[in-house]
Design a protein around this nucleic acid. Structure first.
Lengths: 222, 222
DNA sequence: CGCCATTTTGAGTTGTGTCAACCACCGTGG
DNA sequence: CCACGGTGGTTGACACAACTCAAAATGGCG
């Protein structure tokens, strides 16, 4: 789910060292990069929410990840970026050129191991993500998604308003569902009193335990 | 799909340096490691086919990957392996202790970048895998799987017999389907004259172009 | 207030899963 | 050599979750 949930303090230190000033300020809908652009920098999200999207020839779209403060975007590409990335909200990103990272690694070989460990963690979480996408029901995916948003914004508790800056289409394309299915399941959670939907762009967890239950295994898949 | 399709010559060189002799010979069904075992080595497949499997508490099973000669297994774990790995056929693996890799990286900092590039490739291919699992129809997945097997065994052409060393359950658990769906779609491909199934453990591509067509976009998903 | 995009709701379809029976292959043992 | 049993694969009937198409409702904004 996260591009880089495992970013280690060392990594962030190196990013800080390589970046100039307080980071780049961007407005909502600003593109950080497009698929095919020369991949020459890492972006660490300082504030705001970003969206990584892959569009296929036949029009199918996959929102690869949403990136929150602390997440790092731009790793896991070759010479060129493999997907688009833009801002869902105004925000700020710390930019580090790839060349600076190579430099830092030559100076501090142990940094390489740190990065490698990070990458290993990322690979493991992608394995998990594959499994989840491939084997979970719509309700499990949506409940799990809401939980992950609450967790990442530090509001994993009852009665706290959590921001939902992405539209239904983004959620659908992230979870491999349609907007109708997303909407229906959100409504179902609301009717059951598990969440509340006070206007667009927000939700409230009313019953965390039951939401967790929905994320587990509502229906038997396989 | 591949655990390590991007293994660079340098990487393999280092593996050779660290391994003793011509590699370890294993029989079919030999376990290389189990989930939870202390993750202290990398395995590069020399001959044979290996299977990486993750089993969940609720019994759901995911075949994370099949590894063919040239693929490397054992990367992307933390201290402990995150899934089981066993041999589908008799084979041979080159073993390199993790400690030797750290050592080599300290001596040759550029090796770290190589490994990092490998890891980046792995992350990218996992992104792709997520997309495929999440958005492709059963037929697209199966046709794509057959194509990838043919490609990896160097038999990507018409009328060549390709080995299919894994059982239907393995294919199903790899592609996120049931054995019945796998079987039905294989039969459908056979009826249409696109493939042939001459006894267990093999298949033949009769019409490569049409198989590619099936892998693309048979039915509209989303 | 009125427009437009987004979201929700409804009705019907369909692909894939489930359950169950059947078949084919293959090694074993009489 | 053949009967047997077991494993793995195929086929069929049916159910249901999610998709598709369509229309109505809501919310934001000028």
């Amino acid at each position: 789910m996260y591009l880089f949930p495992h970013a280690s303090p060392d990594m962030r230190g190196s990013a800080d060292a390589g970046a100039e000033g307080p980071g780049r300020v961007v407005g909502a809908t600003t593109m950080l990069f497009r698929e095919g652009d020369s991949a020459d920098a890492l972006f660490e999200v300082v504030t705001g929410v970003f969206r990584a999207t892959k569009v296929f020839a036949d029009g199918r779209r996959q929102v690869v990840a949403f990136a929150y403060p602390g997440d790092v975007i731009g790793f896991g590409h070759g010479d060129a970026y493999r997907f688009d990335c833009d801002a869902l909200t105004p925000g700020r990103v710390q930019v580090t050129a790839h060349s600076d990272i190579g430099q830092a690694m030559r100076n501090r070989p142990e940094l390489g191991e740190k990065l490698l460990t990070m990458a290993a963690g990322e690979i493991a979480s992608m394995h998990d993500l594959s499994v989840l996408l491939c084997r979970k029901s719509a309700m499990e995916r949506i409940a799990g998604f809401l939980l992950s948003l609450a967790s990442r914004t530090g509001k994993l508790g009852n009665e706290k308003r959590v921001s939902l800056p992405m539209c239904r289409a983004d959620i659908a394309d992230h979870l491999g569902l349609t907007i109708e299915t997303v909407s229906r399941n959100l409504t179902k959670l609301k009717i059951r009193g598990i969440i509340d939907l006070p206007g667009r762009g927000n939700f409230v967890i009313r019953d965390l335990e039951r939401l967790r239950g929905q994320a587990e295994c509502e229906t038997t898949v396989h």
